[in-house]
């Protein structure tokens, strides 16, 4: 089964772009969807729009993949809450658990227990410990995302500008990966841009706003804020506008388009990289289905319906290149 699939994949890859479309849709039908499976999607917490965008995509894909889909998670962003949910999913004999973690290490024992009982674990967005999951769908390559974060502001400021970072919490895994990547890229390509302060908004819109105001008041020379967190970017942009510094201070970072639409239109945010959260949700379901079918290996290539072809490298699947929102394209994305 695996070999026949990879054969077809190779054929698809060799085929010219004209033929690709036809073949890809043929492949979607080729995923074995005979047995109905139960797949759960467990976000960091229920009730945030960026995770709901994943859910939206996942629901669509689940229908065509014969998946019994459940979206459930804790009401606060706590590892304990997620572990409770995992335990209940194990007891309910789900076939696949997909999750974005509040904490890579704390979730590991529960997920390992799940795997021991034959449940497949697929992490997405924010990874868990590598030995606690079967596959990880990385939003975008970290280095590339670091570059995109820098470019979202660097183009619009002086080469020796002072900038600030507004993140979520000091120990947020994915934010720290991005901040490291952006620092590396910054020192290589914009060595004279100086990060004067790093503050945290605790993923809370109000604390992010206060932190943004404080950054700008305490560091009047700052001309850009990079905020690689949904609440933080909104808070930073709102702070800039409240201080009447729109046009003088540019905000970049990453956030879902609905939250930042008004700031992109007003020009406080020139561009912002993210990825298509809805399609990522679809991919999560494809990987879940294929993992349940034992149809992908740790290093393999597979086709996920209309989404195209993806490669797993050492169990890590990079979902897409950064998708950059700006004034011209943001209205095409509604999530």
């Amino acid at each position: 089964m695996t070999s026949s699939l990879s054969y077809r994949l190779r054929a698809a890859l060799l085929a010219g772009p004209l033929m690709l479309a036809g073949l890809v849709s043929a492949h979607a039908a080729d995923i074995d969807t005979g047995k109905r499976i139960k797949v759960a999607m467990v976000p960091k917490l229920v009730g945030l729009s960026v995770f709901k965008a994943n859910q939206q995509g996942a629901e669509t894909a689940a229908k065509s993949l014969n998946i019994d889909f459940l979206y459930t998670g804790p009401v606060t962003a706590s590892a304990q809450g997620q572990v409770d949910v995992f335990n209940s999913l194990i007891a309910r004999r789900f076939n696949v658990i997909t999750t974005t973690s509040n904490n890579p290490t704390q979730l590991a024992p529960a997920l390992k227990r799940a795997r021991k009982q034959g449940i497949k674990v697929v992490s997405y967005d924010s990874d868990v410990a590598a030995d606690a999951r079967d596959f990880f769908i990385q939003n975008t390559d970290y280095a590339e995302f670091g570059k995109a974060l820098v470019e979202s502001v660097a183009k619009y400021i002086k080469p020796d500008a002072e900038i600030a970072i507004l993140s979520s919490t000091p120990d947020a895994t994915i934010q720290n990966e991005w901040i490291n990547a952006l620092k590396t890229y910054l020192s290589a390509h914009y060595p004279n841009i100086k990060i004067v302060t790093t503050q945290y908004g605790q993923s809370s819109p109000s604390q992010s706003l206060t932190a943004g105001l404080n950054i700008l008041q305490a560091n009047p020379n700052v001309t850009a804020i990079i905020a690689p967190d949904g609440a933080a970017e909104v808070g930073a942009a709102a702070a800039v506008e409240k201080l009447g510094k729109s046009g003088k201070v540019v905000v970049g970072g990453c956030s879902d388009p609905n939250s930042i639409r008004q700031y992109v239109k007003s020009g406080t945010i020139r561009e912002t990289p993210l990825w298509d959260e809805v399609k990522e949700g679809e991919l999560v379901m494809y990987v879940a289905r294929l993992a349940a079918n034992n149809a992908i290996g740790p290093n393999s290539t597979f086709t996920a319906g209309d989404l195209g072809t993806f490669t797993a490298k050492n169990k890590v699947i990079v979902f897409s290149k950064p998708l950059v929102f700006n004034k011209d394209n943001i209205d095409q994305y509604q999530f």
């Binding site: 917490l45 009730g47 945030l48 606060t76 819109p205 109000s206 706003l209 909104v234 808070g235 709102a238």
Partner: peptide
């Protein structure tokens, strides 16, 4: 004031 509100406000 903030123009935003979430379930954790």
């Amino acid at each position: 004031y903030t123009g935003s509100a979430t379930v954790t406000t």
